[in-house]
Design a binder for these strands. Structure first.
Lengths: 341, 341
DNA sequence: GTGAAAGCGCTAACAT
DNA sequence: ATGTTAGCGCTTTCAC
């Protein structure tokens, strides 16, 4: 094993507790003593054994961020912000890719793995509200995204209905009348798909446009290939849409490709909008109009809220935060060639 | 705290050691006893406290994967494979984004944080060979990528010179004579940029093509925006290139965009090839020709090698593995419209 | 096949 | 301001 507190204590001729206090600063230490101890630490190259500390204190210093797809740049960008924030607050963030798998999600939510982590930031997709409610462990839990609502935990998610409404409203303002939606889910899998669908219908209604079943396509996953396939089926329709609202940017990018392959022009024939503002969409051809949630904000806030709970700070009721979003218009709806800044 | 071994022991009327053996199977346990213990475990919902186990065993069960950019899909894809492999072998993988920062890399390599981790998988970019050699701690280290060579650690990296050679050779076979390279680094920052540059020169020489200083552009980072800017400067040349070999796919995608903005055709006017085979390039317009390293293989192998060292398995000298790569031709060099399978 | 007990390194309550 | 000490939950050696 490495150098321990005891080694330092002996070297500096002080007690264990004093060394601990120099390291952690829980109690004041005399200047002369501190210096001697610090010197011993430097000489011997001491660094604390976290397992021991955690065994003693009952905390591990580990928080878990569980997301459904590490491959999705949306989550990768969000995770980056979360990792930095956690590190800044003295915690280690471990990422867990659930792949949307029900069993994995259940294990995480009910907390069999809880002995390892102080808290969990969770973006569920397959799990139900009841299953989260049934959770018995007291490890703090912060939910992000729209998998589950109305549970007694901090929750951070953009207003999906409003965001979708804004997206579709943008297409309407461009005088599109046959607006498709890609990404609806059969059943309730991925709740946010449903919410975004609602926002879509709401905006259609507000614009006095009819709703057409044919123009809604569900997808198995939420990746580029799903968008490509869905768009192809839309293009095969007797009367294809003149605009597409995609559940997310990845799907939208797949749709862009399908439209291009079919020889249709964007946005002249078909305009496309997504949600997420991933970097791909800023550089695609054409560039992708999107609704941008503040990922940095979401990632940091989730970590802050979680750690506040872990450390017993807030007596407040669970937060329910709706982070800001904004419409970013680009070539896929506005047309033209708009050189990147 | 949760349920402990002691609770189980009392409930089942056996000793601590017996419960431990049921859980870990180090020693045989009588069938009847095992059953009683197992029942107690199930009833009380016991799961071992890892901090205690690790304190006792001197291991943490944590391995760290340190990469320079979590945002780069190449690393995100590789990380996914590594996380799964680690989990399968009973380890927790923690990701650390160094952002290529020298200080962060030094701390990681010299091992101040070592008490927390059993081993490190490291993709260095700013650190030197000497600094890695100077490392005093014995925590196993596996290097991936080309930051550092000839150090006494397992090392996994594609043959960069050969990969670059193959890429440039492909452009040559398309009868391109003015082939540019984007991503060279001033100084030795990111060694692989230098190696890919060497492969580029080698292929030019092999084809009997002259080397032109003007056609080599260095970039600050390795992202889409860097590729965009570099390509713009190339387009401003009196005699722009007729092909571009980019350090990676992200840069290549930025270049695609710049070429499109300038109204040139791909590949008719300028052909583009990258390295990495990230998903973006499979769906871009045009789709991107690339050299594909086997990311899944690299991620899994790195974890396997590391854990073998941690568990003291191999007496073998450090591996130096060159994972396979292959050329994937797409529209950005072949032209046409090639519908995605 | 099973039990008793030492001790991993640390923190915090209790002394001085 | 500093020291002493009791465990946190577990693995493992030594007994039986």
């Amino acid at each position: 094993m490495g150098v321990s507190l005891k080694d330092i204590a002996e070297r500096a001729g002080v007690s264990l507790a004093t060394v601990s206090n120099v390291v952690n600063g829980y109690r004041p230490v005399g200047e002369a003593t501190r210096l001697r101890v610090q010197q011993a630490i430097d000489e011997l190259g001491y660094s604390p054994n976290l397992s021991a500390r955690h065994l003693r204190s009952g905390r591990t210093g580990i928080v878990v961020l569980a997301i459904p797809e590490l491959n999705n740049p949306y989550f990768a960008e969000l995770a980056g912000a979360a990792i930095r924030e956690a590190a800044g607050l003295g915690y280690t963030l471990v990422m867990e890719d659930t792949a949307g798998d029900r069993d994995k999600e259940l294990i995480l939510a009910t907390g069999s793995r809880l002995q390892v982590m102080d808290g969990l930031i969770f973006s569920p997709v397959s799990i139900t509200r009841e299953e989260v409610l049934a959770r018995s462990v007291s490890t703090p839990l912060v939910l992000i995204g729209e998998g589950v609502y109305d549970v007694p935990h901090d929750h951070i998610a953009i207003d999906n209905i409003a965001a979708s409404h804004a997206a579709v409203q943008h297409l309407v303002s461009l005088d599109r009348h046959r607006i498709a939606f890609i990404g609806s889910q059969p059943g309730d899998l991925r709740q946010s798909a449903h919410l975004r669908f609602l926002g879509y219908r709401e905006a259609l209604a507000a614009a006095g446009l009819p709703f057409e079943d044919d123009l809604v396509v569900s997808t198995a996953q939420f990746g580029r290939m799903d968008g490509l396939r869905a768009m192809r089926s839309l293009l095969d329709l007797p009367r294809p849409p003149d605009a597409v609202f995609a559940y997310n940017d990845l799907i939208a990018i797949g749709a862009l490709r399908a439209i291009g392959e079919a020889g249709r022009r964007i946005p002249d024939d078909i305009a496309v909008i997504g949600i997420d503002d991933i970097e791909d969409g800023r550089f695609s051809t054409p560039t992708l109009t999107t609704v941008a949630p503040d990922k940095e904000y979401i990632g940091r806030l989730a970590v802050q809220a979680l750690i506040a709970r872990i450390e017993g700070k807030p007596v407040s009721p669970p937060y329910d935060v709706q982070p800001p979003f904004r419409l970013i218009t680009r070539e896929s709806t506005l047309g033209g060639l708009r050189p990147i800044r």
